[in-house]
């Protein structure tokens, strides 16, 4: 409890409180509807599982002080690749493995460019974004249905594929970030790259691995997406990287790097999801979701700055 209310965990606890309050407030407004049902909570997790995985991957990059704009395109690429190869008779394990390998390869390439040539991550991953979207459209510029029995059977799984993917991603990320040297080096590089170098930490290796990791999570999200939508769609995931960035920032991770938690990112995704659900329940124009997220993002950034300044002054 003391740790939870300490200066480092306080922002996270506050964000958690916001999630609960938001949920209760929406419940008070829609008390005559079925807001307080298992179904709503289940949909909240299921509908945001893919974004949840993406945002977790994004947390790695942002913690290291970088950014990755290519993840939305990677989701589309994996979807189209899976649908095409499954249609040609590939087995699901082979397709999934290839997808993940492609993700790691793309991420490692971008990480190598960022780390070796000191290029701005924004530009490198913007390049990656166009590249992956282009390759996707080259393979197929429309939608391909997936009819493989394994995929069709996923509806009968004990856990929804999107929810399962989110859970797996969360456990893996918690382990990597908090219980491995690699994870701690990410925090160090994001906190102060110069210091990390002088402390003798493997900065180059960490940076490359961070981007590889993020793209791996993105490819994994793409696999989950193809199970959920049972199709590959070349327009999938447009601007989804922006949602992921918003979730990470709302979750309390500093865009400058070095400070933040995966758990916060999960809360950030839940907040975005709650806004969306509430707006659907209120039956108003869905563009209000965007407006809501936009305003919330600005408020959260301000709030974080205020909390940060208080902590720093102590």
């Amino acid at each position: 409890m003391r740790r939870l209310l300490g200066p480092r965990m306080l922002p996270l606890a506050a964000t958690g409180l916001v999630v609960v309050l938001l949920y209760l407030a929406a419940g008070a407004k829609f008390h005559d509807s079925n807001w307080f049902t298992y179904r709503v909570l289940r949909d909240l997790v299921v509908n945001n599982g893919v974004l949840g995985v993406l945002a977790i991957g994004m947390t790695f990059v942002i913690l290291s002080g970088g950014i990755d704009l290519s993840i939305g395109s990677t989701v589309a690429f994996v979807g189209i690749l899976s649908a095409t190869l499954l249609g040609q008779g590939w087995s699901p394990p082979a397709v999934i493995t290839l997808s993940l390998v492609c993700g790691v390869a793309l991420g490692a390439l971008m990480g190598w460019l960022v780390a070796s040539f000191d290029l701005p991550p924004f530009m490198v991953t913007l390049g990656g974004m166009f590249l992956m979207r282009g390759v996707t459209l080259l393979i197929n510029d429309s939608q391909i249905a997936i009819t493989h029995p394994t995929y069709l059977a996923s509806g009968k799984w004990p856990i929804h594929p999107a929810a399962g993917a989110w859970l797996i991603a969360l456990v893996v990320a918690l382990y990597l970030l908090h219980y491995t040297r690699f994870g701690r080096n990410i925090y160090a590089v994001g906190g102060s790259e110069q210091s990390a170098l002088l402390m003798g930490l493997p900065v180059w290796r960490t940076k490359v691995a961070v981007y590889a990791c993020c793209s791996l999570f993105a490819a994994f999200a793409g696999v989950a997406q193809s199970f959920v939508s049972l199709s590959g769609d070349s327009t999938q995931g447009v601007a989804q990287e922006m949602d992921a960035i918003a979730a990470v920032v709302i979750g309390g991770t500093l865009l400058t790097g070095g400070r933040g938690y995966v758990a916060g990112t999960v809360l950030g995704v839940l907040i975005l999801g709650l806004i969306q659900s509430a707006i659907i329940f209120a039956n108003i124009n869905s563009w209000w979701t965007r407006i809501g997220i936009g305003l919330l993002l600005l408020i959260f950034v301000l709030l974080q700055r205020a909390i940060q300044q208080r902590v720093d002054r102590q």
């Binding site: 219980y179 701690r184 906190g191 110069q194 210091s195 402390m199 070095g258």
Partner: peptide, 29 residues
């Protein structure tokens, strides 16, 4: 030890001392 403190201000004191040399057990720090 340099004129400016070259450590990571946001991490804990313990971590700043052991960073890069953490003891690991079964793959966990």
């Amino acid at each position: 030890v340099y004129q400016e403190v070259n450590l990571i201000p946001d991490l804990s004191v313990a971590e700043n001392i052991v960073l890069g040399r953490q003891t690991q057990r079964f793959g966990f720090i």
